[in-house]
Amino acid sequence: MQESRCVFITGGATGIGAATSEVLLERGYKVAVTYRSRHSSENLTKYGDRFMEVSCDVSDSDSIDSAIDQVEAKFGKIEILIVNAGITEDTLLLRMSHDAWDSVIETNLTGAFRLTKKVLPSMVRARFGRIVFVSSVIAGMGGPGQANYAASKAGLSGFARSLAREVASRNITANVIAPGAVATAMTANLSQKRMDEMTSSIPMQRVAEPSDISGAIAFLVSEEAAYITGVILPVDGGLSMGF
């Protein structure tokens, strides 16, 4: 049953989103991924009709409506939502513009609200749903130059836990994954000094590969995770222990 469930992943073209798409396709799910500028890796097309990609700007409700309508027309109602799309606009708060604040909150937090609002009615009716928000260890620890990003990701925690309480009785779970440093295009923008600082404070002494994160996401959307909701799961090599 679970193998054919329909998954919608935002920001699925690269990094954590692409790795998650691959592991779920490998396990038999139907997977739709969104992209804004970059398409997914061609090797996902080998999964044929179980894979599709749609253009979607999570800061635009009409774009979300259109993307989800296209996916539902092909795959049926979305049963699993993975909110992964995110942006950074790092700079110290003293230099941070209102636009840099607004755009990060808009995409990372308000985008999650929009997506969830769109898919939740059918999950409630179906009495089944899995929602995973991809946050960051920065949500709890903070990060210099990342006040907007940290606020957006910390906001996801309260959002997910409120949602979890609201819809738990309908067999819908809402959880948060909090990766530490991951080798993706986003962390490629960090300075080497910052990366070295992060690595030195990670008990496992390495940054994560996207596949380290996708395995945890795949578990949270599985049947085996039916009794897990409202959790913020660090997947960070031990980085955030004690925070």
Binding site: P121, V124, R125, E166, V167, S169, R170
Partner: peptide, 11 residues
Amino acid sequence: ADSLDIVELVM
């Protein structure tokens, strides 16, 4: 009926 039941009924 709880609050979510009522929301579902409205839907």
